[in-house]
Amino acid sequence: MHIVVCIKQVPDSAQIRVHPVTNTIMRQGVPTIINPYDLFALEAALALRDQHGGEVTVLTMGPPSAADSLRKALTFGADRAVLLTDRFFAGADTLATTYALATAIRKIGETFGAPDLVFTGKQTIDGDTAQVGPGVAKRLGLLQLTYVAKISALDLDNKTIEAERRSEGGVQILQTRLPCLITMLEATNEIRRGGMADALRAARAEVVTWSAKDAGVEDITKCGLRGSPTIVKRVFAPQARAEKATMVDFSDTPPADALIAELFKRQPKLETELATLARGY
């Protein structure tokens, strides 16, 4: 069995600082991590491989430094890493990203064997759209199972898979055919630590590095900024509310009383509403 896991290298949001004057984020020096949501996809893939045999290939599109994340994935136990890197990919929105990833996955199939499963995380912590997984599936003509909490059965002989998919009001138990794409829900497993052997292998392993051309991209205008139907026209700081916050003065009343007095003065109905609510509990 061959599983491809798409991961993304993202800035560690816990470490992000905002420039006090320009209000833009200071990416420089911010450590990068594997998008945390992708680790659930990676672990699910590794677990399936351990159970059924086969190989896990991790794929990322990004700057050359994204090789770090791929190497990290190798230390967790992935078998192969592919980095898709080219200046033509810069500035891609979700549609252009899915074009590049889908092309690379096709190439991975030709080079290392057709994937039975493609995994992505639920979403990234930077773009946050949750649209790349479904987009890649559509471009590859794969069936898709999104928000998967659990893979309950995999039958490689009959090429079927059963999974629990989170929906708004419950859990759908779905069965579909391989190959398919799965986006994994968070907190559904815990990434393994990876052993010494994996660490050594990762240190020595070659990260397969492809340019757009290497990956088989035929139409460069479908990539990056040029291939993106959406454009960011304006970036701006949110406005403060026109009316300034009333700051509660508690120089001669206990702060709690001063605050409550201000609330009830401002919204007289609130007191009865709160009393009703409080009684309900």
Binding site: P11, S13, I16, V18, H19, N23, T24, I25, I125, D126, G127, D128, P229, T230, I231, V232, K233, R234, V235, F236, A237, P238
Partner: peptide, 16 residues
């Protein structure tokens, strides 16, 4: 909202 900073962005789909 955009990533990280306290910023919003306005996005257009002009040609499609």
């Amino acid at each position: 909202p955009t990533f990280g900073g306290s910023l919003l962005c306005t996005i257009y789909t002009l040609n499609y």
